[in-house]
Simulated assay, not measured.
Amino acid sequence: MTDETTILAAGCVLWRRSPVHGELEICLVHRPKYDDWSHPKGKLKPGEDALTGALREVGEETGYAATPGAVLPTLGYVTGGRPKEVRYWAAEATQGHFTPNREVDRVLWLTPSAARHRLTQPRDRDLVGALLSALHLA
């Protein structure tokens, strides 16, 4: 699904252990432009490696540094009449804090079940299960 018209993007299913009770939490971002909840992701810069772009987007959208883990499924869909391919990785949040910005005005750290319900796009929900499998929790 890649050619010169395909929009290339990358992102992460960002996770951490709750600082309160130690349970797995997944970070979702709210983008006011679309009024949606999604995993942090974005378009790659020209010549940018997908994993580098995914980690850059996590930092820009959430304020967190992350350690990448397993490769997760790539999602393909059409947006604005063009095909888009988004490569994903599991990534553990290591340090940082969220500051609202132009692209993302809120983040939520949710249990996997709550994250599945909050995600706007059904295609993003399967990534939660893929993360749990990658972490050997499913």
Rank of each mutant, 00 (worst) to 15 (best):
A9Q: 11
A10E: 07
G11R: 07
L14M: 10
R17Y: 06
S18P: 07
P19E: 01
H21W: 12
E23Y: 13
L24N: 08
I26G: 06
C27A: 15
V29N: 00
V29E: 03
V29T: 11
H30F: 15
H30L: 10
D35E: 10
D35W: 02
D36A: 14
D36C: 14
W37E: 06
H39I: 04
G42R: 02
G47F: 07
E48D: 06
T52W: 02
T52K: 15
G53Q: 02
G53L: 05
L55M: 04
R56A: 13
V58A: 11
G59L: 12
E60L: 14
Y64D: 05
A65V: 04
A65Q: 12
T67H: 08
A70W: 06
P73L: 06
T74H: 00
T74S: 09
R82Q: 14
R82D: 13
R87E: 11
A91F: 04
E92Q: 14
T99K: 13
T99Y: 04
R102L: 09
R102D: 13
R102A: 13
E103Q: 09
D105G: 00
V107H: 01
L108R: 15
W109C: 00
L110H: 10
S113G: 14
S113H: 11
A114Q: 14
A114F: 04
A115W: 13
R118E: 14
Q121M: 11
D124K: 00
D124L: 09
R125A: 06
L127I: 06
G129F: 03
G129C: 04
S133L: 13
H136L: 11
H136R: 14
